[in-house]
Design a protein around this nucleic acid. Structure first.
Lengths: 344, 344
DNA sequence: AGTGCTGCGACAATGTAAGCCGCATAAAGC
DNA sequence: GCTTTATGCGGCTTACATTGTCGCAGCACT
């Protein structure tokens, strides 16, 4: 774009081209990339920019162990333009609280520079006003927080890049059934993060069918020589709804009718089950009548199950039956084995 | 800090001082803030920087309806130094997918410039390689996603700022019980986001006890004249664990023992319930034996309830009894009202 | 040893930044 | 209605910064 001889803008472009610390970029490559963007400058100028101007003002490092020097940004550095405002910073902190329970630590770690920036800003305020933000913001996750699966940082990076740049990858995969590591060549098609585990959707080289690979069972990943095989008919939403992750779901919504206890009524008034939802008080009791259009999926059924005695489902009858059968089965479980092991 | 006469650095500082669009900053104020940071420049230079240099290269606007001109950044603009890498961008997209179901739209909206940045980067890649990132990344939330409560942007901003800068606020609050709006003066102490609703912990002016205020029931908020009342004995974690959000929890962990079905065993092997967890196959069946140290809280109990027939709890006996009683009660519910309304 | 790549110091020509001044405009005060 | 004050803006000048060029020095590879 701009071939304006603006030095400021060239500096900024330069700063944007230097990757964060695990990454590196060499001087000649930088020169080339700058040229691509319309900055045709002499190598010497670039060297001066890096070595004398930028590296004195920014946390920029230089790996001079090999001759085309490699430049990189400090791992923790982050700078936003415009600067973060207070509400945004607080939102970031909240977001981090939530995400820590949802994504593998490494993946959240990918964003630490951003979160650090927010924390720094809030800490800075704290030093004046003494508001200890860390002590006044919490996120309570939805449902039981399982511990996110461990995941190697390099693997996440490789897989993410392969998926987006449409490359095939060679992996060592620890099969769930056989407990042995197998080398595979995969053609990534999608990533699904469910609860606390993250899965790669891909098909194995030479095969046509799509399979799921838990990322934390990938032990090694590298870009492959093989060309990436496309599947243009692939639709991730259709794939998920087809039941691949245990969330089989009818194509249409169903109308849920139920009687709900007062606390549940309050909850649903504030955070509704769906856009179409009505709640009416049932005269002469603490109960309410709920009607809502909800998806016909496992999630909703689980939610109803968790509400246990606080919700009486009236329709659809299939759910009613499922819940009833479930309760009967659970009860049977516990009556089969009487409480001989009571430890009280 | 740096009184280095570096123009680049001054430009950057300047850019950081200009707020995003709802915000505005006037030229004299900018001059003052720059001086605070060690940049003592002539007003004329500042004017030139803004009007001729920056505003041609950046999406910066100027409100010249009143005489000290007011400057602001384009609402959607975001620039990171160093630029986002591909894995980070993908992580941001994933994070947004999750957060959309967890935080009020307005709060997530606070971060849209960040997410936009990521999307832009990925879109840029797509135009080359045609990898439609939007079609290959999904997050499946944990548990039933209720619709996050509506919340006004200005209210979130006011509350966040008040909390962090320790100011009291005047609000109009829609009481849950009386259905009427009441004016209150609050002294914010904390924010808790639970599931899809966000609560302000504060005490009412003149009272000592802490109360929760659902942010979506706050209809109006403004900074108050009154001085903020501190409560230095306040500990948000203790407050939550004391049961304030329906998550009463014993102080100690308990040892959960249970028999679990094969799919659950797989799930827990990948995303454990806790750090201390063992799973052993039970010979001659598809069942496994689980032992885990878990917190004694409602969440865990709910999770067990949701697993229904796939988990048979052996200990602690209190949970066993609870689950059993629950099942009995649910069953009773449905048998009280026989299936006369079956619609099949 | 020769060749090519890279980094670096020096230098001169060019370009630019920034203070200063004066003028124009608009709002506030008398 | 006129002055005062605050701000924006164009132009001028100078000191200073930027940048291409050159020469030299390591270093790797041949």
């Amino acid at each position: 774009m701009s071939d304006a001889r603006d030095t400021l803008f060239r500096y900024l472009t330069l700063l944007q081209l230097i990757p964060r610390s695990p990454g590196r970029i060499s001087t000649p490559v930088l020169k080339e990339k700058l040229a691509e963007r319309g900055f045709h400058i002499d190598t010497r100028s670039l060297q001066r920019d890096l070595g004398q101007k930028l590296s004195t003002q920014f946390p920029i490092g230089c790996d001079d162990s090999q001759k085309p020097y490699r430049w990189y940004f400090d791992r923790a550095f982050q700078c936003h333009l415009p600067a973060l405002d207070v509400p945004s910073a607080l939102t970031l902190v909240l977001a981090e609280e939530y995400l820590k329970g949802l994504l593998p630590p490494v993946v959240v770690g990918q964003l630490t520079p951003h979160f650090n920036d927010a924390r720094q800003l809030l800490d800075g305020m704290a030093s004046n006003g003494l508001s200890k933000w860390a002590r006044c913001v919490r996120a309570i996750p939805n449902g039981k927080a399982l511990i996110p699966a461990e995941l190697d940082e390099a693997i996440w990076q490789t897989v993410a890049e392969a998926l987006l740049e449409q490359k095939a990858i060679d992996v060592m995969y620890l099969s769930r059934t056989s407990e042995t590591e197998k080398p595979l060549t995969l053609h990534p098609q999608g990533i699904v993060s469910r609860h606390s585990a993250t899965y790669l959707l891909a098909h194995v080289d030479g095969f046509e069918d799509l399979r799921q690979f838990a990322l934390h069972r990938v032990k090694h990943a590298a870009f492959s020589q093989r060309a990436w095989q496309a599947r243009d008919d692939f639709d991730i939403d259709r794939y998920i709804q087809s039941g691949a992750f245990g969330y089989r779901q009818g194509p249409d919504n169903v109308v849920l009718e139920a009687e709900i206890a007062r606390p549940v009524a309050w909850l649903l008034q504030e955070t509704p089950l769906s856009e179409q939802q009505t709640i009416e008080a049932l005269p002469g009791s603490q109960w309410y009548r709920l009607t809502a259009q909800v998806p016909d999926d496992q999630q909703t059924l689980w939610w109803l199950m968790g509400m246990s005695t606080n919700v009486k489902v009236l329709a659809p009858s299939a759910w009613r039956e499922t819940l009833k059968a479930n309760a009967a089965q659970v009860l049977a479980h516990y009556q089969d084995t009487p409480d001989t092991c009571d430890m009280h």
